[in-house]
Simulated scan of single mutants.
Amino acid sequence: MIKVAMTSVFVEDVARAHAFYTDVLGFETRLHMDLGDGTLFVTVGAPQGAQPDLQLLLEPGQGPIADPYRRALYEAGIPCIVFSVEDLPAEYERLRGLGVRFTHAPREQGPVLAAVFDDTVGNLVQLIQP
């Protein structure tokens, strides 16, 4: 069986993204390597036991492919990634209390309750509750 091991999100600044995804969203650092020349290889994942094999790579978002792609998604209002939560209204309030800017509050979208926020490093992220 094939499983997702890692996926990436292009970000404007890897260090700022790492701080946001860990300190605000609550992910844990899985890998943090300095590759030289100020280049970081950073992955994060859900806290202990939730999804031990799945990592999110915070990918540098500069360059002729990544930057236009990331900007086009953002300007079109399309989230670059979707995370699930058990209690979206509670998570929405927790994140708003930490200063996270939502582009839309929780609302029903088909079979899920969904909200979208700005991750401060060039992306929109969607939270869903089945």
Rank of each mutant, 00 (worst) to 15 (best):
A72S: 10
F117C: 10
R107I: 03
I81K: 01
A105W: 03
D67F: 09
A46N: 03
Y92G: 05
A90H: 08
T39K: 11
L98A: 09
I128R: 04
E12D: 15
F20Q: 08
D118K: 06
L31S: 11
H18G: 06
A5R: 08
F41M: 15
L54Y: 12
A50Y: 12
T29N: 00
L56Q: 05
R94T: 10
Q126K: 11
V42W: 02
E59K: 10
M6C: 11
Y74S: 09
M33R: 14
A19L: 09
T103M: 04
C80K: 03
G63S: 12
A50L: 15
T22E: 03
F41Q: 12
L95M: 14
G122I: 01
E93R: 15
P52N: 04
T22I: 00
E91W: 02
D119H: 02
V44P: 09
A76W: 09
I128C: 09
V112R: 13
Q51I: 03
P60R: 01
L57R: 06
R71L: 14
G61Y: 01
G63F: 11
L98W: 02
A50R: 10
R70I: 08
T7Q: 12
R96N: 02
R30E: 12
G97A: 05
D37Y: 05
T7K: 00
L88S: 10
D87E: 14
Y92D: 03
P130R: 14
A5H: 10
E93D: 14
A76F: 10
T120V: 13
R107Y: 01
Q126H: 01
P111T: 08
C80S: 13
F10K: 01
V125F: 00
T120A: 01
P106M: 09
L127C: 04
V116D: 07
L73I: 02
G61M: 01
G38V: 13
F83V: 04
L56T: 04
A114P: 14
R71F: 07
I2V: 15
R107G: 08
F117M: 13
V125D: 06
H32V: 05
A50M: 14
F102D: 02
L56V: 12
G38Y: 03
L58S: 08
G110F: 04
T7W: 11
E86H: 15
A72K: 04
S8P: 00
V24W: 03
D87P: 06
V11I: 06
C80N: 09
F102I: 04
P130Y: 07
G38F: 05
A115Q: 10
L73W: 04
V4Y: 07
P111V: 05
G49E: 05
P89L: 09
I2K: 15
G110S: 08
T39W: 00
E86C: 05
G61A: 06
F102S: 00
V100W: 02
L35P: 09
T22M: 01
L98G: 00
V125I: 15
A90F: 08
